[in-house]
Design a protein around this nucleic acid. Structure first.
Lengths: 189, 189
DNA sequence: TGTACATCAGTGAACGCGCGTTCACTGATGTAC
DNA sequence: TGTACATCAGTGAACGCGCGTTCACTGATGTAC
């Protein structure tokens, strides 16, 4: 069948969107190309008209997630209190509930690190976030504090998602959020 | 063939040790039972004389890792400065280099959380570590600080292992270590 | 002391299954005449 | 305006592979007589 001019580009983007979501939600290894294509109403054979391998899609989907999250972070920057807003969003119950739409670091970095050659994109995502936090921490130790804050945010979100007991999950999320916001505000005074 | 009285128990323990190591190093999904048994000089069929399923082994291997780590944490408690020692060990280059012998939280919790039903053992590991940190933080906000510290340690170790650039990896590890040790010492004064 | 038998940890072929990947094919549409 | 042909996104069967799991079997050793 022949389609409109940009049809293929649109299909490609649909694959990237869905993959980016499933990779973050279920993990890369646990996401098959067959179910992925089926979820879009397509058959698996067509996949290779768009990408040369699953690995290529992993890289592109991660990049897509990174750009998406950068946009979302910039929303926080536009607010009155950029850093507290960013922290509150990152450690929100909404973010915890939607790993497929959220930061790829807590969900994908362990698996990507365990693979043969980790992606250079992980470095880039981390650097971007550190720079963003640092730029909004007007204190001497901003470079150091930003590392602690990112580590704590990624760790708290990861643990809060891995736990069975909802009360413990809330405690991990909310306590980290509260302390990090305190630190970010204390330092800007 | 017949073997000595405790031969089977020893084999079982060897399987648990190896699985506990490979699950943490490579991930649960990426570790096949066939390669696991082969690494011990056994054939895969014998596996089911010891465990009723891979899932059962996952649970037992995680428990084994948790106990092992608890023992290692207690070593830190015997030192002059329990908490700084624990933090320095957790965020050491040695720990970063040996995921298979280290804390299961940065390596396994994402994958276990993504599986259908996460293990209750994850809750237990987290509670144990929080209690241990809290008991060595003689300040009012010890309960809150312990959550932040554990989150930051898990996050920093995870990210430091996921990154390509050794310099960035070192920065994540060492900066978090330094700031957390400062916090733990400041609070005990 | 020597022989027959029971034990049972471990063997290895086989099962169905889903994986990533390949490829000959389809068929609706745009273009050429 | 009507017909023949080219295009090419998507189809779906098939590939080899490793997975978790099952099961009839092996064979060295301990026990019974």
């Amino acid at each position: 069948m022949r389609y409109s001019e940009d049809h293929k580009a649109k299909t490609r983007q649909r694959i990237i969107d869905e993959a980016s979501h499933l990779f973050r939600r279920d993990g890369v290894g646990a996401t098959g190309l067959q179910p992925l294509m089926k979820a879009l109403g397509l058959t698996h054979g067509g996949f290779y008209a768009h990408f040369k391998s699953k690995d290529e899609l992993v890289e592109i989907a991660l990049q897509h997630a990174a750009e998406q999250l950068k946009g979302s972070a910039e929303e926080s920057l536009a607010s009155d209190a950029p850093l507290p807003t960013f922290i509150a969003r990152y450690l929100s119950t909404a973010h915890r509930a939607s790993p497929g739409a959220g930061c790829p670091l807590p969900t994908m970095s362990a698996e990507l690190g365990q693979r043969g050659q980790p992606s250079a994109l992980t470095d880039q995502v981390i650097r971007d976030r550190l720079a963003m936090i640092e730029a909004n921490l007007p204190i001497e130790q901003a470079a150091e504090q930003s590392v602690l804050m990112l580590s704590a945010m990624v760790g708290a979100l990861l643990l809060s998602r891995s736990v069975q007991d909802p009360e413990l999950s809330d405690r991990l999320l909310k306590t980290t959020r509260q302390l990090l916001i305190e630190q970010s505000e204390a330092s800007s005074i």
